[in-house]
C-alpha cells in the first residue's frame, strides 16, 4: 500500500511541475509581445513615439541616398500628403521636410501617425529628431496644418541601401471623439 502512496505522491509532484510549466508557457506567450517590441526597437522597425539621439554626426558625402515620402490615411476624414515626394541626402546631414494634413470634417478629430520604413531594415538608421508622430495630433474642424519632420540618416546605413521610403499612416484615436455623434462629413 505504501508503494502505491509513494507512487501517488510522485505523480502529484510531477503534475504540479508540469502544470507550472504550462502556466509559465501561457505567460511566455504574453512575454513575446514586449520581446517582439524590443527586437523591433533594436532593429528600428517600430520605433514609434520617441525622439532618437544622434550617435555620429559625421556627414558622409561619398554617398547620396534617395528618400521617398509617403502618406496613408486609415479611416480618417483627413487629407494627408508630404510637401515633397523625394529628397536626396548624404548620410549624417540634418534634413527637415514637412507633411501637410487637413481635417475635412466639421468637428475636431484626433489622430496618431505611425511611421514605417521600406526596406524595413533601414528603420534603425533613420534618426528622427522631431516628428509629428511623437504625439497625437488634434485638428480643429477644417484646420490645415504643416508638420515638420527633422531627421538624420545614420552613416552606418548598409552600403547596399540606396533608396528608402518613409511612410506614415494616420489612425484615428478612438475614444477621444468617438463619444461625439458622427454626422455626415460636409467636406471642404
Amino acid at each position: 500500500m505504501s508503494i502505491e502512496n509513494a507512487q501517488r505522491s510522485e505523480n502529484r509532484k510531477l503534475l504540479v511541475r508540469l502544470s507550472i510549466g504550462a502556466v509559465a508557457m501561457f505567460g511566455f506567450g504574453f512575454l513575446l509581445v514586449p520581446f517582439y517590441e524590443k527586437i523591433c526597437e533594436v532593429t528600428g522597425i517600430n520605433n514609434l513615439l520617441k525622439a532618437d539621439e544622434v550617435v555620429n554626426t559625421q556627414v558622409d558625402t561619398s554617398r547620396l541616398i534617395t528618400i521617398e515620402f509617403d502618406a496613408n490615411i486609415h479611416d480618417l476624414p483627413w487629407r494627408f500628403h508630404p510637401l515633397q515626394s523625394v529628397v536626396k541626402v548624404h548620410p549624417g546631414e540634418l534634413i527637415t521636410i514637412a507633411y501637410e494634413v487637413e481635417n475635412t470634417r466639421d468637428k475636431p478629430i484626433t489622430g496618431q501617425a505611425v511611421p514605417s520604413y521600406g526596406p524595413a531594415v533601414s528603420g534603425q538608421f533613420f534618426r528622427k529628431m522631431d516628428c509629428f508622430c511623437f504625439t497625437q495630433q488634434t485638428l480643429e474642424a477644417g484646420e490645415r496644418r504643416t508638420m515638420p519632420v527633422a531627421f538624420v540618416l545614420d552613416p552606418a546605413l548598409p552600403d547596399d541601401v540606396h533608396t528608402i521610403t518613409l511612410s506614415y499612416t494616420f489612425f484615428e484615436i478612438a475614444g477621444k471623439n468617438a463619444s461625439l455623434p458622427v454626422s455626415g462629413g460636409s467636406g471642404t
Binding site: M25, F26, G29, F30, L48
Partner: peptide, 30 residues
C-alpha cells in the same frame, strides 16, 4: 504542454483586442 498555452495566449490577445480596447495587433495603438 509547451505550445498549447501559447496559443491560448494568442487567442486571448485577439479577444481583448476585440472587446477590451487593447491593441496588441492594431497598428493604431502601437
Amino acid at each position: 504542454i509547451a505550445v498549447m498555452p501559447v496559443l491560448a495566449g494568442a487567442v486571448t490577445m485577439i479577444l481583448t483586442d476585440r472587446h477590451f480596447g487593447t491593441s496588441f495587433f492594431n497598428a493604431a495603438g502601437g
